[in-house]
C-alpha cells in the first residue's frame, strides 16, 4: 500500500505541471490583460499603462512569466493580485474557508435528506411516497440553483407579508443575503455560530437539493440490489427484525459508493457552491473567481486553479484509498 501511495505521489508531479501549464497557456490566449481597460480612462496616458504592465511583468514573453510564476509557487507564493497589489494567498484564503463552511453544511444536509429518502424509496418501491420522492428530487435537479435561491428568498418575503397581516410581525424569518449579520462582531462565540448557521440555511438547502436526486436514486438502486441478495434472505430467515435487516445489513454495504466518494468532496469544497454564492452574496470562491476572471486578474484565477487541482489530485488519491479500505475486493499491492 505504501509503495502504491509513493508511486501515486510521483505521478502527481507531471499531472500538476501539465495542468498549470495548460491553465497558464489558456489564460494567455484571452485578449488583453488587467490593464487594457485603463486605456479607456480619459486622463491615463498609454505610457502609464505600459509602465504598469512592465511593473507586473506583463510585457514579458509568456514562458518567462510562467517560469517565474512556477518558481514562486514552489515557494508557496501564488503571486500578486493586480487589483490592490495584494498577495493572491491573502485574496483567496478567506473565500476558500467560507465556501468550505457552506459546502460542508450542504453535504451534511444532503446526506441527512437523501439517505432516509433513498432507503424509504427502496423499501417502499413504486409506492406513492416513492413516486413523490422521485418527483421532488428531480425537481431539485432540474431547477437552476441561482433561480431556486431567488424563489426561496421570494417565499421568505411572502411569508413576512403573511406574518405581518396575521400577527403584526414585520421581519424576515431567515437572512436573505450575506454570511453574517451587521452586528455580528458584537455577538459572543455561540451567537456568532448561530448567526452564520442562520445565513447558511437558504444557500445550503439550495445547493443540497441539486444533488438529492442523484444520491437518492443511487442509494435506492444499491439498496434494492442488496435487499434482494442472499445474505439478506439469510438474515430474514434468522428472524432478524425488518429494521435491523434494512439498516444494518442492507444500508451499510449500500453506502460504500458514498464513503468512497468522500475523497471527491475535497475539490468540491474549494470549488464552492457556484452561482448560489453570487445571488446570496455568500463571500465564497465563486464570486472571487468570477470577479477575477472578469478583470483578468490572472494570478487570482490561476491561484484558485492551482489550489483546486492539488485538492482534486489528493481527493482522488483519498477516494481510491478509502475504496480499498471499505471494499475488501479492492487491493492495491
Amino acid at each position: 500500500m505504501l509503495s502504491y501511495i509513493i508511486r501515486r505521489f510521483f505521478h502527481l508531479i507531471p499531472t500538476f505541471l501539465g495542468a498549470t501549464l495548460l491553465a497558464f497557456v489558456i489564460s494567455q490566449l484571452v485578449p488583453g490583460d488587467f490593464f487594457t481597460q485603463k486605456l479607456l480612462e480619459p486622463g491615463v496616458r498609454p505610457e502609464t499603462v505600459a509602465r504598469l504592465r512592465a511593473m507586473y511583468g506583463l510585457d514579458q514573453h509568456w514562458t518567462v512569466q510562467y517560469f517565474r510564476w512556477m518558481a514562486n509557487i514552489l515557494q508557496g507564493d501564488l503571486g500578486l493580485s493586480f487589483s490592490g497589489n495584494q498577495p493572491v494567498n491573502r485574496v483567496i484564503g478567506e473565500p476558500i474557508m467560507n465556501s468550505m463552511v457552506l459546502v460542508v453544511f450542504s453535504i451534511i444536509l444532503l446526506w441527512l435528506i437523501s439517505i432516509p429518502l433513498g432507503v424509504y424509496s427502496a423499501v417502499r418501491q413504486y409506492s406513492l411516497g416513492d413516486q413523490l420522492v422521485s418527483a421532488f428530487a428531480y425537481f431539485g435537479l432540474a431547477i437552476p440553483n441561482f433561480f431556486f435561491a431567488q424563489v426561496i428568498v421570494l417565499l421568505v418575503f411572502v411569508l413576512r407579508s403573511w406574518t405581518r397581516e396575521a400577527f403584526g410581525f414585520n421581519e424576515v424569518i431567515l437572512p436573505v443575503a450575506g454570511m453574517t449579520s451587521s452586528d455580528h462582531s458584537s455577538m459572543n462565540w455561540w451567537e456568532q455560530r448561530w448567526d452564520i448557521f442562520r445565513h447558511m440555511i437558504i444557500p445550503g438547502f439550495v445547493v443540497a437539493t441539486a444533488s438529492i436526486a442523484g444520491y437518492t436514486r443511487v442509494l435506492r438502486g444499491q439498496m434494492l440490489e442488496y435487499l434482494s441478495s442472499d445474505f439478506i434472505r439469510t438474515a430474514r430467515a434468522k428472524g432478524l427484525s425488518e429494521r435491523k435487516v434494512t439498516y444494518k445489513h442492507a444500508l451499510r454495504p449500500a453506502l460504500i459508493p458514498f464513503i468512497a466518494g468522500i475523497g471527491g468532496i475535497l475539490p468540491t469544497l474549494i470549488g464552492g457552491a457556484g452561482l448560489v454564492e453570487v445571488v446570496m452574496s455568500w463571500p465564497g470562491i465563486t464570486p472571487t473567481f468570477l470577479n477575477a476572471l472578469n478583470r483578468q486578474d490572472i494570478y487570482v484565477v490561476l491561484g484558485l486553479l492551482v489550489v483546486s487541482s492539488i485538492l482534486l489530485m489528493i481527493g482522488n488519491l483519498i477516494s481510491d484509498l478509502l475504496l480499498a479500505a471499505v471494499d475488501p475486493r479492492i487491493r492495491y499491492d
Binding site: 431567488q150 428568498v153 421568505v156 418575503f157 421581519e171 424576515v172 437572512p175 436573505v176 443575503a177 450575506g178 449579520s181 451587521s182 453570487v278 445571488v279 446570496m280 452574496s281 463571500p283 464570486p287 470577479n291
Partner: peptide, 20 residues
Amino acid sequence: ITFELTGDQDAALNLYLAGE
C-alpha cells in the same frame, strides 16, 4: 456607517427589501 460588501446588485436589493 456599516457597508455590506455584497458583490451583487440583486443581493443588495434583497437586503434593502428585507430592511437590512
